[in-house]
Amino acid sequence: MSQSINSEAILQQMLPVFRSALDSPDLILKRELDASAVPTWDSLNHINLIVSLETEFGFEFDTAEIAGLRNVGEMADLIVTKLIAKN
């Protein structure tokens, strides 16, 4: 299975987590989406989002891992990488 296919599946799994954590029930997740395009994606909701993603996928992020993420696509790729490493 290629990483891009996995990332798409992960994006689908991330969608309800994003909608809940960012309080945006109609949010559409695209790889290029970033915080600047979502009014409710503020610093506190970002914390909620990271914690919710950790719960959803069953691992913990490192500070350095999330510090450099530029958009949803990079976040999905990181999740795929961590899931592969976990398994």
């Binding site: 970002h46 990271i50 914690v51 950790e54 913990e60 992020f61 490192d62 500070t63 891992e65 999330i66």
Partner: peptide, 11 residues
């Protein structure tokens, strides 16, 4: 009950 180190959150 939880420590999310990456975002320095303590629950």
């Amino acid at each position: 009950s939880k420590i999310a180190t990456a975002v320095r959150l303590v629950v």
